[in-house]
Design a protein around this nucleic acid. Structure first.
Lengths: 178, 178
DNA sequence: ACCTGAACACCGTTCAAGT
DNA sequence: ACCTGAACACCGTTCAAGT
């Protein structure tokens, strides 16, 4: 508040006259930031490929505008960030032949998976220096609990981009049976 | 800090002699809380059913111990909470016939999906009163953008428990083809 | 209508001084 | 070895007083 006021060349208390509270101020900032986000785009030739494009695009956009996402999260307005993609996704699900409640479940399953991935990856990156990743925990855990090859693979860690693409692909296999 | 000190019948500054910082204190609290969590259990008869049981169990456990989860999240130690389930899940994936890197991808896809769902649902519940859900945004959005039946379904909202079960089921369909 | 300074009730933290 | 009070540098916010 004091920093913002200084930048505006005004006393901290003036901000309260204009915005009422810190939260209200941040809310207006977020609204502007959200308006400036680009529209989701999908140019591929099949509905399924366009779904992947939209999902990946949302993930990339959030990664590229992390401060916006953190602010939205803090203000409990994360839903707004994903809404344009949700609408575009709904259109593709309808294009793939699904209707009504069935279509809605598919739209939501995809969006929850994408959104969940984003939050989870984000949480990993904000990891406190001293804390352990599950990767490190697999090292600690003596062998023998699971198959040796699996153990080694778990100890190696993952590329989250690859995992995201894999998970989305398999989910779509389940959601849109040939 | 001051509250904790009062409860311990000591000056706030004494806490710093024992723990060093607020973060270190909370870290030790979290370690104890995590130790007290029950082991993941899976009693069903097929690997796939046990996977569903483990995933659902983790979700339920987190919901039942939300303060622990929030603390783990704040301290960047969310990974630890899911680790026992991750090991149990790895065992089931191996039991279903997968090995090495393929198995690891499947374990991670499931765990990321479950973890993501948990974080996302949690974020929705912590929604700020004034903020809009996508459900409300669908109402705002005039009709015509998508199929009318789908629009109505999106306006109705979801039971996240049902959506979770559905998504997990479809993901497993994709991950463990018959 | 807009801005101000003084002040309040909080934070986490440091540190010299005590026993 | 453990505890203390005083103090620092922060927060968000209220409010009476100014112009």
């Amino acid at each position: 508040m004091r920093k913002v006021a200084t930048m505006a060349g005004v006393a901290p208390t003036s901000v309260y006259w204009h915005f009422g509270s810190r939260e209200a101020l941040l809310g207006e900032v977020l609204t502007v930031l959200i308006e400036d986000l680009p529209e989701p785009q999908a140019r591929s030739r099949t509905p399924r490929k366009r779904m992947v494009e939209l999902a990946t695009g949302l993930r990339d956009q959030v990664a590229a505008t992390q401060p916006v996402q953190e602010l939205a999260l803090e203000l409990g307005r994360a839903a707004e960030l994903s809404f344009p993609t949700q609408v575009a996704l709904a259109r593709e699900v309808a294009a793939s032949g699904l209707r009504g409640d069935d279509a809605a479940m598919v739209v939501r399953a995809i969006l929850f998976t994408v959104g969940g991935f984003i939050l989870l990856t984000d949480n990993f990156e904000q990891r406190v220096p001293g804390s352990e990743t599950t990767q490190e925990l697999w090292h600690t855990q003596g062998g023998g609990a699971v198959d040796a090859g699996l153990q080694r693979a778990m100890e190696r860690g993952v590329d989250t981009d690859v995992l995201f693409a894999f998970t989305l692909d398999k989910l779509l296999d389940g959601l849109l049976p040939a």
